[in-house]
Design a protein around this nucleic acid. Structure first.
Lengths: 186, 186
DNA sequence: ACCTGAACACCGTTCAAGT
DNA sequence: ACCTGAACACCGTTCAAGT
């Protein structure tokens, strides 16, 4: 019955709540002040746990990608799909990962997952292929998620809808992945 | 000698100055207030020419991409390169285009350039291939430009530098494009 | 037609001070 | 170790009013 006088938080908890808030309200509304309110704390308190908003977002990006399974032996397309699915699992997931890509963190694990799958598949020039694949996965998912924004926000596809292509996103994605693993780097 | 009492602006000029300012200070510092100062005008004056910052950025995105040549007959890789180069020509160009992608505008012209080149090359399933190519070009360029941020801002590649792959960006890009046009959509 | 002035409802971040 | 309170230097946007 005592009010949670000792409801104090640690860094892990702050990141957890940030990820949950991201999924609920989206990146534009994930502000430090809003996150602080969610934690029943003053905004300045966040800076005890985290050096900056950018660092917070990098930690969130890691959380989004970290649970990507090491892809035991299902092949490269399965590995690529698991990364795409991790990005799609949270609202604005791809954008968060992309924006913290600059720090050199975040996408590291995804790169390793792809590189591992490529190596097991016996594909030559693993480094270049993994980079190409990761860039495609990020670009594709960013586009798909951006379109979700537009559709939910109303004013989308004003002039016909070239933006949604003939095939479904999943087919487009598989097409791209298949093409990229088929051709060795040469 | 008369002070420019009639220095009034039109929409085209506002977008011009916004693009120049973007290239000079980067997207995070391209604020409505800063742009207004550049035009010697109060911030509220911008809303006569433009409905919102988002609309302004969409117009800037169009300017970035619009001058991509129709690629007479140099093939698909040349078309893809010309789009990448247009994005790289301005600071944060890829990010601006991507963020206004949601409005359905901006990348339309780029899509058409790619689709045209694919059609002339006799590649089947033009729609799906153009979508895949555009997604790869956007993802690749976003990654490259994000890395420029990181490097100029100091704190990059802390743990070794997996992020810069074995090959140069241009080689990675060409590898991706070649792979994507080699395999028909099936 | 184009702009000013003033206001509204916000931001991220710092820092002394509290417990 | 973790948080409050107050402040600093900003944001995008609206709207009546001016010329």
């Amino acid at each position: 019955m005592t009010p949670p006088r000792t409801a104090r938080h640690d860094r892990g908890h702050v990141v957890d709540v940030a990820l949950e808030l991201l999924d609920r309200v989206g990146l534009p509304d994930l502000t430090m002040r809003r996150l602080a309110a969610e934690l029943d704390v003053q905004p300045s308190a966040l800076y005890w746990h985290v050096a900056s908003k950018q660092e917070l977002l990098a930690a969130v990006a890691d959380r989004i990608l970290d649970r990507t399974p090491p892809s035991p032996d299902d092949g490269v397309p399965a590995a690529a799909r698991s990364i795409r699915d991790a990005l799609l699992a949270y609202r604005d997931g791809a954008e968060v990962v992309m924006s913290s890509y600059a720090l050199g963190l975040g996408a590291r694990h995804a790169y390793d997952v792809l590189a591992g799958a490529l190596r097991r598949a016996g594909i030559p020039d693993v480094d270049a292929s993994a980079a190409v694949l990761l860039q495609f996965v990020l670009g594709h998912t960013l586009v798909v998620q951006q379109r979700m924004h537009a559709e939910s926000h109303g004013a989308a596809g004003v002039d016909g809808g070239w933006i949604e292509s003939a095939r479904s996103d999943a087919a487009i994605f598989d097409h791209g992945v298949r093409a990229l693993v088929a051709l060795p780097a040469r």
